[in-house]
Design a protein around this nucleic acid. Structure first.
Length: 282
DNA sequence: ACCATTTGACCAGG
DNA sequence: CCTGGTCAAATGGT
């Protein structure tokens, strides 16, 4: 039974999302300002708290933009809303570890789903602020490192169908290639670019094809605070910094020249940057 | 005790 | 038949 949504649903939705996004941005901003990575005394560090806050925002936004709200909209309006993936929600609430009523071992008996939408991210970390639960790991033929399989923690309680596959890269064992499968997940992930890759990667095939206007349009649509975070992150972890970054979605990748990225970032005046922290700027 | 991860079983699709 | 994606029992951590 869906909870009724007060007022005009689209107006309320926009307001809630706007508020959450604002809070998320402020928390991200705060995270950037907090230099101290760990607590001295075993308590949660401020940075860890910010990570938790950000996760809450991401979770709330994800909920609002996914099946629950789609159902509400469909109940209250006659407009067509894309609800692909919202129809298999389990009505019986599920404990995560509850065993399914099976008469025999049904492991592996499933319908293999088609990958409708996916995006690939290359990052030195597998952490993305979203809630995942590992459900498998496989040795992959001719691959040095195994592939791990994760599903959305809310698969059963909210019908979240997102999955991701994570594999350490042979070319650069410091980096992980993560394939996110699921529409909402891709949108969430691409809002928080953690994409750092080497310029000679095979994924840079579109670098020269991207017209300047496309690059600037795409960059201006991204949250500048998030980009500051990326800049900070990359500079601290990679002494020999890359001169470009790559984002991949729906099977195609696009590379951005780092100079252009840096120019596209509108630094707030209250943030003090030490240029020595950013090798590639010089 | 509860929850997440590990790991071998199982099976769909190529 | 082989590979890789998913399931679920076993195991481990808190």
């Amino acid at each position: 039974m869906a909870t009724p949504w007060p007022e005009n649903p689209s107006t309320s939705r926009e307001r809630v999302i706007k508020e959450l996004i604002q809070g998320q941005e402020i928390a991200t901003h705060l995270q950037f300002l907090l230099k101290k990575p760990y607590g001295d005394d075993g308590f949660l560090s401020a940075n860890e708290l910010v990570v938790k806050i950000l996760r809450s925002f991401t979770e709330a936004l994800s909920l609002l933009t996914s099946c629950d709200f789609v159902e509400i909209l469909q109940n209250q309006t006659t407009s067509q809303v894309d609800s692909v993936g919202c129809d298999d929600r389990r009505s019986e609430d599920s404990g995560e570890s509850r065993k399914r009523p099976t008469t025999k071992d049904s492991r592996g008996s499933y319908k293999r789903k088609k990958i409708s939408q996916s995006c690939t991210i290359v990052s030195p970390t597998t952490e993305d602020g979203l809630a995942w639960r590992k459900y498998g790991q496989k040795e992959i033929l001719n691959a040095k490192y195994p592939r791990s399989y994760f599903r959305c923690t809310h698969k059963y309680d909210q019908g979240c169908k997102a999955t991701k596959q994570v594999q350490r890269m042979e070319e650069d064992p410091q980096m992980f290639r993560t394939i996110y499968i699921g529409d909402h997940t891709c949108r969430d992930i691409l809002k928080v670019p953690q994409i750092i890759t080497e310029p000679d990667s095979h994924m840079l095939q579109h670098k020269e094809e991207a017209p300047l206007s496309d690059l600037t349009d795409n960059l201006s649509s991204l949250d500048p605070i998030m980009w500051k975070d990326l800049v900070s992150f990359e500079s601290s972890d990679e002494p020999a910094a890359a001169d470009s970054i790559t984002m991949c979605a729906e099977g195609s990748c696009q590379s951005y020249d780092m100079d252009l990225v840096v120019k596209a970032i509108d630094f707030d005046s209250d943030l003090q940057f030490d240029e020595s922290d950013f090798n590639y700027l010089s």
